[in-house]
């Protein structure tokens, strides 16, 4: 999968939980939970969407490596089969 395709999937996962968010609202290097106003339940649902759309399962240990848009993108690029 190409970078821009993964990026689109990532945005789609966010919008499933927070439909009001557009890409330009997000500072790609800031904590995604703050940027997109996600509470703990929203964040878990967002990870479920990521799994659904990309097949990549994010575990608790991965959290520090996926807490911004940019980090998640890099993590998905590395792990997408």
């Amino acid at each position: 999968m190409k970078n821009h395709e993964i990026k689109a999937l990532l945005l789609k996962a966010i919008q499933e939980i927070a439909p009001e968010i557009e890409l330009e609202d997000i500072d790609l290097e800031e904590d995604l939970r703050d940027e997109c106003d996600l509470d703990s339940m929203d964040f878990l649902n967002y990870l479920i969407e990521i799994k659904k759309l990309t097949g990549v399962k994010i575990t608790e240990r991965d959290y520090p490596n996926v807490n911004t848009f940019k980090k998640m993108l890099a993590h998905l690029e590395q792990n997408i089969a």
């Binding site: 919008q15 927070a18 439909p19 009001e20 968010i21 106003d37 996600l38 929203d42």
Partner: peptide
């Protein structure tokens, strides 16, 4: 459904 969800989140916040 999505529109309403976003509409509510914008006004009320995630909490």
């Amino acid at each position: 459904q999505k529109e309403l969800k976003g509409f509510a989140r914008k006004r009320l916040g995630a909490a």
